[in-house]
Amino acid sequence: MALSQAEVLTGLAEIVNEETGIDTTQVQMEKSFVDDLDIDSISMLTIVMNAEEKFGVTIPEEKVADLKTVADAVNFITEAQ
């Protein structure tokens, strides 16, 4: 069964927290991974990899650069399920 946007956001926030220590409540839809959450590129790649595993989706490498905000990632994952 496909997860809702809210469920994807919750799961993604957990992944971000495990990798970076950023509090899950800070991982909000409008936040930018780089500008707001200060996530470096190597952490971003790890988050993508863990998201693929957790949500059973494939995020192409050329797509990663387009995932600028949390909403970008949540929407992509929700649709790709």
Binding site: N17, E18, E19, T20, G21, T46
Partner: peptide, 8 residues
């Protein structure tokens, strides 16, 4: 250590 420290 923190979780990110043990992961990285």
């Amino acid at each position: 250590l923190s979780v990110p420290e043990t992961k990285r």
